[in-house]
């Protein structure tokens, strides 16, 4: 068998997972509908005053993004675990970390990217300014991959456990707090006409840090869970 280069392995895994996701579209869509629904509930809960809504919009959108990414994380390894594909993946002579990175990328493309694209529509519902929406999208673009990457660790650790979904949120949500803080902070800075670059730079730093370590840690976690 020809040995695949790391990059073509990555592309292979991403393509496979995307095809699988497209075959059962409802899973993807329910997560998105959940996101839209949670965000739409807030104005009903706190009242329709535009000032208030503008103020809470970044926080609401970010928390909803966090929750809906938790919702889809359970599926990251579960299906492959059930039908035995994951065991085969662990036996592959190529780097498991790259394989895991591929799964993270496809998870983000399916569950993170749509949130980024949906955010402006929801932002308009909350009467956000165009500039604030731009920064919100930028923050989500940097932050949602971090959520997928950190979440993958939790998903790998809780693989096949009873009550895995709730446990997963308990493990991962505290780790995601910095992302939430800087994501909403950037939008807050724009509305206060301050510089938002520091928030986004820190978010970028966290992105690079997560990209460096999480695939490897997740690979270790998978080995622990599967032995």
């Amino acid at each position: 068998m020809k040995k695949l280069s790391l990059f073509s392995l990555l592309v292979l895994v991403v393509r496979r997972d995307l095809v699988l996701a497209m075959r059962c579209r409802t899973d993807v869509l329910t997560t998105l509908v959940f996101f839209v629904m949670v965000v739409s509930l807030f104005p009903l809960g706190v009242g329709p005053e535009a000032d208030m809504l503008r103020k809470i919009a970044p926080g609401v959108l970010w928390v909803a993004a966090l929750l809906s990414s938790m919702l889809s994380l359970g599926r990251l390894f579960a299906a492959d675990h059930q039908d035995g594909t994951l065991e085969q993946m662990l036996l592959v002579p190529q780097s498991l970390a790259v394989l895991v990175l591929g799964k993270m990328v496809s998870h983000w493309m399916v569950s993170g990217l749509p949130l980024v694209l949906l955010a402006p529509v929801l932002g308009l519902q909350f009467d956000m300014s165009v500039e604030a929406i731009g920064v919100l999208m930028l923050g989500l673009l940097l932050g949602t991959p971090i959520l997928s990457m950190l979440g993958a660790i939790g998903a790998a650790l809780t693989l096949g456990l009873r009550g895995g979904g709730v446990l997963l949120s308990l493990l991962v949500l505290p780790l995601c707090i910095p992302v939430l803080i800087f994501g909403t902070g950037a939008v807050g800075a724009v509305t206060a006409s301050l510089s938002y670059s520091s928030h986004l730079s820190l978010m970028g730093a966290m992105f690079v840090l997560a990209l460096t370590f999480t695939p490897w840690v997740t690979a270790q976690a998978l080995r622990i869970s599967m032995e």
Partner: peptide
């Protein structure tokens, strides 16, 4: 055995995250 190792990995990830969380909360 699995419980020990999984929880150990979580504790290590958590301890790496503690300073990040602390400073982000402080700046926030």
């Amino acid at each position: 055995r699995r419980a020990d190792r999984a929880a150990a990995l979580l504790a290590i990830v958590g301890s790496v995250n503690v300073p990040i969380i602390y400073f982000s909360v402080k700046w926030w």
